[in-house]
């Protein structure tokens, strides 16, 4: 187990270096000159532009720029944004907000997804099974920005039930609507996944055997059916944490949440290589760690799985 963990952690090093290099190259290859763009429609003063380029090392070749970035990143110095803000401070402000949003969305989708999925799977064919199926189908087929705008208009603007936008330091109430929107699609998938798993496991031989041995319906469902049904669901949830953090761009824009998604968007628009790469690096780490945790979870759910 320990050996396995160590190996997995060591594997993260090439993954991180590879992704940062790739992202750095992509940002570098973006057409357009961020320094010229800073002048907007106004004439570019070449002398000033040169000064700014040398300040941000933009006049150096790509690989040198990348090595400088890597060297500084090792000492946790990610440089400054064009606005003169330390990148680390910008991320430090945005990340807690995104984490809050992602946790709320995660809890929302995990709880409601699993609960409705189980209800549906156990009582297949009942009227509420059909309702749950139809609603989940609807959520999957409608893009989040539509769900977002519609909820924002009715719940926020029209009826005034929830805050319309969240701002930079949002509380629980502010994030209630954005988190439900963000988690809604995944929730629908989890409902369907859980439902399929539960309904197929319930007719398995081992369930029939357990029943024949005289176990109560409750413990059969909880200890056998559910436990075995959770493996694919946990896999999906684990991968989704990363997606919730990095993929909140649309939701964050609709509800004006100043989290990672919005910051990343601004970084891309302004061509701020270091900001984009730093954020992506952190997201990569989140993904890698989540995957590791999910793999660990398998053993808990299914004792047959061993790590060597």
């Amino acid at each position: 187990m320990g050996k396995y963990l160590l190996r997995r952690i060591l594997q993260m090093i090439p993954v991180v270096i590879g992704t940062t290099l790739l992202i750095y190259a992509l940002v570098f290859a973006l057409p357009g000159d961020p320094v010229a763009a800073m002048f907007g429609d106004k004439p570019v003063n070449a002398a000033v532009a040169a000064q700014i380029r040398s300040e941000y090392n933009l006049d150096k070749p790509f690989i040198i720029q990348y090595l400088i970035f890597l060297k500084n990143a090792l000492t946790l110095d990610f440089g400054n944004t064009f606005a003169g803000q330390p990148v680390i401070a910008v991320i430090g402000r945005a990340f807690p907000v995104t984490i809050k949003l992602a946790i709320m969305a995660f809890v929302f989708e995990a709880v409601f997804g699993v609960v409705f999925g189980i209800i549906s799977g156990l009582k297949k064919g009942k009227w509420y099974d059909s309702v749950i199926l139809i609603v989940s189908l609807l959520l999957i087929s409608v893009p989040t920005f539509v769900t977002g705008f519609v909820l924002q208009y009715f719940l926020g603007v029209k009826w005034g039930l929830l805050p319309v936008t969240a701002g930079s330091n949002p509380g629980f109430i502010d994030l209630l609507m954005p988190a439900s929107v963000l988690g809604s699609v995944s929730m629908a998938y989890i409902i369907r996944l859980t439902r399929t798993e539960v309904s197929s496991n319930i007719s398995e031989d081992y369930v029939r055997t357990a029943r024949a041995k005289g176990m109560s319906n409750k413990s059969v469902t909880l200890r056998h059916v559910l436990r075995n049904s959770m493996i694919p669901v946990v896999t999906y949830l684990g991968a989704d944490i990363g997606a919730l953090m990095g993929g909140a761009m649309i939701t964050e824009r609709i509800f004006n949440i100043n989290g990672i998604g919005n910051t990343l968007y601004q970084g891309i628009i302004r061509g701020e290589g270091t900001l984009v790469v730093s954020i992506v690096t952190i997201l990569v780490l989140v993904f890698v760690v989540c995957n590791l945790v999910v793999d660990m979870f398998y053993a808990v759910l299914d004792p047959r799985i061993r790590y060597v």
């Binding site: 709320m104 709880v111 949002p170």
Partner: peptide
């Protein structure tokens, strides 16, 4: 039980959220 667990999670979240909803 699920609802109780959810609202517990919610409380801790709102606690770290601070008091921003008064400003708007």
């Amino acid at each position: 039980v699920v609802v109780a667990a959810l609202s517990a999670a919610v409380m801790s979240l709102s606690a770290c959220g601070g008091s921003s909803d008064t400003a708007s």
